[in-house]
């Protein structure tokens, strides 16, 4: 899947309808009491659900043909990386994943119609592209968090190194 191609002086394109929906959803969630919207949610399950869909979209054809196992290893590596982050960053990421996993967050903010487990890679890629270029800096930061976590986790693993021509660290 290709992400949106921007050339020359084209302004950041707004998906106007999406933006309106996004703001509406954000406002609704905020009006609902912020974290109240997350009451009863399982943060770890939410994170796993979202990551399982996001990992293939971020990594594209960097993933080997045995995709499912590689995705699972990457999800696990992302979880390990998150566990090493500062508590404040962990709390923010937990909010991001719970928001994305909730039906209003997924449909209104992320613009993904299908449940994450059924969403196609193209559908998830379209969500990433929207957030990547979004007018709201907060959503761009959400995209970058997903990008950095997933790309960082995958390319940290020795199995990712051969295809990019990296021999791994020297033995000392």
């Amino acid at each position: 899947m290709d992400d949106i191609d921007f050339h020359g002086a084209a302004p950041v394109p707004d998906r106007r309808s999406f933006l309106k929906l996004g703001l509406a959803a954000g406002t609704a969630l905020a009006a609902g009491g912020g974290m109240l919207a997350f009451v009863g949610r399982d943060a770890e399950a939410d994170r796993g659900t979202v990551l399982a869909a996001v990992v293939p979209a971020v990594l594209g054809d960097a993933l080997p043909s045995t995709r499912a196992q590689a995705v699972a290893r990457t999800v696990h590596a992302v979880e390990t990386a998150i566990a090493g982050l500062a508590p404040a960053a962990q709390a923010e990421l937990a909010q991001l994943f719970m928001l994305l996993a909730s039906a209003p967050g997924r449909t209104l903010l992320a613009g993904v119609g299908s449940p994450w487990a059924q969403a196609s890679t193209d559908e998830v890629g379209a969500f990433l592209a929207r957030w990547r270029h979004h007018r709201l800096a907060m959503l761009r930061s959400g995209y970058q968090a997903l990008h950095d976590l997933v790309a960082g986790a995958w390319y940290a693993m020795p199995e990712a190194w051969g295809p990019i021509g990296y021999p791994g660290p020297p033995r000392v």
Binding site: M1, D2, D3, A57, V58, L59, G60, D61, A62, G125, L128, R132, H147, D148, A151, G152, W154, Y155, A156, A160, W161, I164, Y166
Partner: peptide
């Protein structure tokens, strides 16, 4: 690899090609 992959922009096949 990690510093480069997290710094380079983009995702999906385009990012994989850059890597």
């Amino acid at each position: 690899p990690v510093l480069t992959a997290t710094t380079l922009a983009g995702f999906g096949d385009a990012h994989a090609a850059a890597m």
